[in-house]
Write a protein that binds this DNA or RNA. Structure first.
Lengths: 204, 204
DNA sequence: GTCTATAGCGGGATAGAC
DNA sequence: GTCTATCCCGCTATAGAC
């Protein structure tokens, strides 16, 4: 009876692709309809407005990016292994979703209220961070690692994992890297960052 | 005779502000004209098109961001001091221009060709990096630092400097930091990153 | 549910008077 | 140089036929 049995689903998938690669303001409902092989009116029929559709995609993307850290920090292992796990999990998530960091960072910078409106449950992130924080303090007291502010360490680790994805076109250009070589480099960074961090904090 | 003696200059300044905070696609010539206290037609009279005006701002911004690294890497000092100098210079530049990283990263991601078209003199960046690269290799041979791929080290340093600016709204939200406290934190990071990097690479 | 047609707006750009 | 008026396009959104 219908050409397209699950237009609703196709639209979401198209929206994910278009919004995440182009961002809210550059993406158009026409793009999304075309990508989904659907009439423009259908987009509004199922999702009412561009804004509403965007919110669904944004929330989903944000959770993807956050939850891969949460799992790792929560696990019951020693600090160094935990650091290794965080880095591995996070880079794996980024390799599978390379456009997410740009998308999230841009949209939040353009519209910081979105974060506060949609994610009232910030406490979760805060509590999980406290878990990591305690691990760090315990090791400091034991004397196995140097004194370091947990927030600084956390920022350093995230920075080294995410930034090479954000700045990928720039690095590729400056160093004349091909796409596949850059992929290998990102893969190798799991090990490199882990070693770098452990050397930075380990007492010797 | 004229209300506004140097509209041309006012327009550039307005364009800088509007483009850098909103990005190309969200910024409008109407925004820029308003910000410059000038009629919309004047924007086209002096700069022909939105695209053309944007290119001027983009090139200027890119050079600002790059040149602060070049100066430091080129100087004739020992590796550890050079690393310290790079980090200090770079974070100072970012504190003075906090919107630049988002602007550059976004626009290049949306339109990677822009980089290649406008900046044919990529060799400069490449050569200066080789300078740093040699310094690192020399110290490795001397045995004062651990073996590390210069590109990895370079990426790590840049990541830790820039990312906290890119992700400022997210970090402020998660950790409930106020604007002024976040400013202090960024200032402190000069020292923190320097120590972190030196500990990470120094043999002991 | 699906399509066509169209309303209604905001955008970039220019013609032409002064 | 400066301003008004206007063109024309592409966008979001909806009304209404099927």
């Amino acid at each position: 009876m219908e050409k397209n049995k699950d237009a609703e689903k196709d639209i979401i998938e198209a929206a994910r692709k278009v919004f995440i690669t182009k961002g809210f303001s550059s993406a158009t409902t026409r793009d999304i309809a075309k990508e989904a092989n659907v009439n423009i009116a259908m987009v509004h029929y199922y999702y009412r407005s561009k804004e509403n559709l965007f919110d669904i995609i944004f929330e989903e993307a944000f959770k993807t990016l956050i939850s891969s850290i949460l799992d790792a920090t929560n696990s019951n292992i020693a600090l160094f292994e935990k650091i290794e796990l965080i880095i591995h999990n996070y880079i794996n998530t980024l390799i599978s979703n390379p456009y997410l960091p740009n998308f999230i960072v841009n949209e939040i910078t353009q519209n910081p209220e979105r974060i506060e409106k949609k994610f009232k449950d910030k406490d979760i992130y805060n509590k999980v961070f406290k878990r990591l924080s305690e691990d760090i303090e315990n090791e400091t007291i034991k004397g196995t690692i140097r004194e370091i502010n947990p927030i600084s360490l956390f920022m350093n680790i995230l920075s080294m994992c995410i930034f090479p994805f954000l700045a990928k076109p720039i690095f590729k250009w400056v160093f004349e890297f091909g796409e596949s070589y850059y992929g290998e480099l990102l893969e190798e960074r799991k090990k490199i960052i882990t070693e770098f961090v452990i050397n930075a904090i380990k007492k010797c």
